[in-house]
Design a protein around this nucleic acid. Structure first.
Length: 224
DNA sequence: TCATTAAATTGTT
DNA sequence: AACAATTTAATGA
């Protein structure tokens, strides 16, 4: 019974791997617990791992010269990220901060590259993932220009429910309105008002510290 | 298990 | 940004 099979994370890239390869890969994995507010890595840290989120929620963020934080993306449980950094960079270009208590899976660089050289499905997974993220960030540029602050909230929510990047994510997400505001780059007030509107439209339901998506199709309208 | 208190979150100004 | 109201989590009897 290996590490992967015990995790509540669907590691799609591991499907189809021969048993001996799987054992080899699992020897290159480790777990790390990070409390809410803690960091998985900081800007400038050496890139030593590819990250997966077994449970919890993290955000990828940078800080502007004036000290204003900018959130690039949120990654819920089931998501893997950092392949761009592992492939291209020696140092992290963004910080990874836990928005909730989080359990992360760390894959050593050497293991990552071994998979690249030995598994075609893994290569396919990485290409799909890079492509999906590229689409997200291109969309973000558009959204920043075209969408109002209130519209950026449902867009951010829709991004979290990307089935390709984060398969099997629960309809109900443990995510406060303040945290959603950080993700969307809007104030908590705007996040609140936007959620109220979405609730009135029957797209989401709101609970204390949680949001549940009721209508995925309606939410995807905000992706543009 | 229940009551009390602190902390977190929400809705509004 | 600041306020009050509400919900949850933590604590201890």
């Amino acid at each position: 019974m290996g590490l992967l099979s015990e995790l509540p994370v669907t590691a799609a890239w591991a499907e189809g791997l021969p048993r001996d390869a799987l054992e080899r890969v699992e020897s290159g994995l480790s777990l790390r617990e990070v409390a809410a507010g803690g960091a998985l890595c900081h800007i400038g840290d050496p890139v030593e791992h590819w990250f997966g989120i077994a449970s919890g929620l993290v955000k990828l963020s940078v800080v502007s010269a004036e000290g204003k934080p900018l959130t690039l993306a949120g990654v819920p449980s089931g998501g893997w990220f950092g392949e761009g950094a592992v492939l291209r960079d020696k140092l992290w270009r963004y910080s990874v901060v836990a928005m909730r208590d989080t359990t992360a899976v760390l894959m050593r660089r050497a293991t990552f590259f071994w998979l690249l050289e030995n598994s075609l499905p893994f290569n396919r997974f990485i290409i799909d993932q890079l492509n999906e993220r590229l689409a997200q960030f291109v969309g973000s540029l558009e959204a920043a220009r075209i969408l109002t602050a209130k519209e950026r909230v449902p867009r951010s929510l829709a991004l979290l429910y990307n089935p390709r990047l984060y398969p099997g994510i629960d309809r109900r997400l443990h995510l406060s309105q303040e945290e959603l505001g950080y993700l969307a780059g809007v104030s908590r007030q705007v996040a609140n008002q936007s959620l109220q509107q979405l609730k009135a439209q029957g797209i989401v339901s709101i609970e204390y510290g949680k949001v549940t998506v009721l209508d995925f199709d309606a939410l995807r309208q905000f992706l543009g």
